[in-house]
Amino acid sequence: MNALTVTGLCKSFGGLRVMDGVDLSVSPGERRLIIGPNGAGKTTLFNQITGEIAPDSGTVGLFGRDITRVACRRRAHLGLARTYQIITLFPHDTILHNVRLAFLGLSPLRWNPLAALDRRQALAERAYAILARIGLDHIAERPLAQTSYGERRRVEIAMALAQEPKVLLLDEPFAGLSIDERGDVQKLLLSIPRDVTVVMIEHNMDVALDFADRITLLHFGKVIVEGTRAEVVADARTREVYLGT
């Protein structure tokens, strides 16, 4: 059974067709890289997998279950987590609180109007543990507004990891990072256990290629090439898309 199955996904904005019959099958534990030029529909694909955008037609399946009609928030409870290319964090709060919210999203505690959140030691400890994994535990109490861009990129990933997803969607986790920071994030991604399926959008080939088991090349909302790293790199169509020859 596939971890993630997408069949015949179509989406138009106004008259513009941004997703034109995309099929995708990702096995459990696989690392899948999705590449493609700007406007290929990569982020739109993610938005439809998580349910933030409803497709015009086609289906999305998670471990054999059709989730096309399942609300976005329910998909998080089914084990789907994502990061955003454009940083989407809580700017007024501390790093710790950001991660804590990720835990809260899946916990019935989120409805509790009486408990004191700051006194929930177990929750804080779990958040610290995640922050230790990404190496930000020493600045956990720092307001997000006072953190660097690279730190925020890592908090993005920490929030997704905190939800212990079965399928993790990473939208350009290396975007805008320095070489040192890229190394940190790369180590972090390699440390993700193999029972988590990872789908990643990335432009930065030198860090991303090593990571991927299989690669899907998207162009104008269609899958152009799919295969192992070597197959996709060797394929003439890949060069055509990227070099325009």
Binding site: R82, T88, P113, A116
Partner: peptide, 19 residues
């Protein structure tokens, strides 16, 4: 409370909260 934190979260970043 946790609910208060959830509420403030919907104010600052509703899209992420849904996800």
């Amino acid at each position: 409370s946790p609910f208060g934190a959830s509420l403030a979260g919907t104010r600052d970043q509703p899209r992420r909260m849904t996800a």
